[in-house]
């Protein structure tokens, strides 16, 4: 049978060189990839920080606006847009409840703020 490559009859020393070179190429390739991922990650982290800073600034601006009517403090707090009132939990940890609501929303394919959960009770 003919040799598939001129390097097929490679000697031990050449094989050692190929092995070291191959290992180095794998490292080089993955280090290159690592650098690219790090740069990409840093860009996204910087973007997130910028967005958070803008949100914080907007919240601070809203908080600094004086309340016009003192009577408003006695009135029940207004619900935020998309809020669906209070949720009653029976023997369920808030973390578990949050997870369950997320799963239900995902399975129904609807945003969480379009669903209303009235109560969650553990069935024993």
């Amino acid at each position: 049978m003919m040799l598939a490559s001129p390097l097929d009859g490679i000697g031990v020393l050449d094989a050692a060189i190929v092995a070291v070179l191959g290992y180095a190429v794998v490292f080089f390739g993955l280090i290159l990839l690592m650098i690219v991922i790090m740069v990409m990650g840093n860009i996204f982290i910087a973007k997130d920080k910028k967005r958070e800073a803008l949100n914080a600034a907007a919240k601070a601006t809203i908080a600094s606006v004086p309340v016009a009517t003192p009577a408003a403090s006695t009135a029940p707090a207004a619900t935020a847009p998309g809020s669906a009132g209070k949720l009653k939990l029976y023997d369920v940890e808030p973390k578990t409840a949050a997870m369950l609501m997320a799963i239900v929303a995902d399975k129904m394919g609807k945003p969480l703020n379009e669903l209303r959960f009235i109560s969650i009770k553990e069935v024993k």
Partner: peptide, 10 residues
């Protein structure tokens, strides 16, 4: 989230 793990893959 942890690109340094590529080094372990290498």
């Amino acid at each position: 989230s942890n690109p340094k793990s590529l080094l372990l893959g290498a």
